[in-house]
């Protein structure tokens, strides 16, 4: 047997013992999981994950819908998604090892003090295979321990990565990758249960592994990254999975809110992941570190932007209530 196959077999064995599910079936809702996730007024919600989370800020659908669905409960939402990130903090490190990424994340968690953290990790296993699954799960556990340590009482939502699409050649066939994602979802469902986290089966909600053949109306740009229409559907399914209901507000009322969400996200992005980190906070801060004083100046701007979001949300809700 080829060593790689051996590793796969070992991973499969692990799955067989921990998640006795066929890859194509939907994961059953964890027995103890309530039908809906409870948000509270003034919750700070942090989004954490790789590209699928990071790109939400380009479209703003998830935050827009979540704000509308939460009605009178006002929350603040901060996107800490980072392309290519893993539970080990790979993308968050600069000059150092991934642990430096975890340190950076720690600082951000300390800054934001989240009440709710929504996590979507594991997309890399789609292509790297399931041999890394055990390490992934223990890394995930360590990450959640960190989040809890920094924010005692934090409530967690774990989402499984959504499925990939088979687009026309020469784009690659994603069927094997989807198989991996289905297995990952099974493992995550069980993992979320063991971590007392609310589980969102985004994989299944978005239709699970596509049937063989090409996707007719793609929701992804390249088979793996969702388009704006894709994010609309991702959002709808996510809100549903949380047990929330979206009021029927007209686009004329929701679009200004969504645009303001995107503008707020841009401000926040330049706050938490500013360019020129090498000079502002990194090893050359003794040269241009004096410019770092500008970075906290984003905070009042973001607070104002949040206030504006509340106003726009209220306007949109009023429009929804009017028949």
């Amino acid at each position: 047997m080829h060593p790689r196959d051996l590793r796969l077999a070992a991973a499969a064995l692990l799955l067989a013992t921990t998640a006795p599910l066929s890859a194509q079936e939907a994961a059953p809702a964890t027995a103890s999981q309530p039908a809906s996730f409870e948000f509270k007024s003034d919750d700070t919600i942090v989004l954490l994950g790789s590209t699928v989370i990071e790109r939400e800020q380009r479209y703003g659908h998830l935050e827009t819908s979540l704000r509308l669905a939460l009605g009178d409960k006002n929350v603040s939402i901060r996107n800490l998604g980072w392309s290519g990130d893993t539970v080990f903090g790979h993308a968050r490190s600069y000059f150092g090892p991934p642990e430096e990424g975890i340190q950076r994340l720690t600082a951000h968690l300390e800054l934001l003090k989240p009440d709710v953290v929504i996590l979507c990790y594991g997309t890399e296993l789609a292509h790297e295979g399931l041999s890394g699954l055990p390490a992934f799960l223990s890394g995930y556990r360590a990450l959640l321990d960190l989040v809890r340590e920094k924010s005692p009482g934090v409530r967690l939502i774990i989402a499984s990565p959504p499925p990939l699409e088979n687009l026309a050649p020469p784009l690659p066939d994603q069927a094997p990758a989807n198989k991996n994602l289905a297995s990952l979802r099974d493992a995550l469902a069980k993992f979320a249960g063991s971590q007392n986290a609310f589980f969102v089966d985004w994989f299944q909600a978005m239709g699970g592994a596509p049937k063989p053949g090409r996707v007719e109306k793609p929701l992804t740009e390249n088979g793996i990254h969702y388009t704006e229409a894709g994010y609309q559907k991702l959002t709808t399914k996510f809100i549903e999975a949380l047990g929330l209901k979206l009021p029927d507000a007209p686009p004329t009322a929701t679009e200004p809110l969504r645009k303001a969400v995107i503008a707020k996200d841009f401000l926040f992005f330049n706050r938490w992941r500013p360019q020129n980190e090498t000079y502002l906070f990194g090893f050359r801060k003794h040269e241009q570190g004096q410019n770092a004083k500008e970075i906290p100046m984003f905070d009042p701007l973001i607070a104002d932007a949040d206030k504006k979001l509340v106003e726009l949300k209220n306007t949109a809700l009023a429009a929804a209530k009017r028949p």
Partner: peptide, 14 residues
């Protein structure tokens, strides 16, 4: 000074 992590349909490139 740039550190890059890109998800592609063929896997992550760093």
């Amino acid at each position: 000074y740039i550190h890059t992590h890109v998800e592609t349909p063929h896997g992550i490139r760093r």
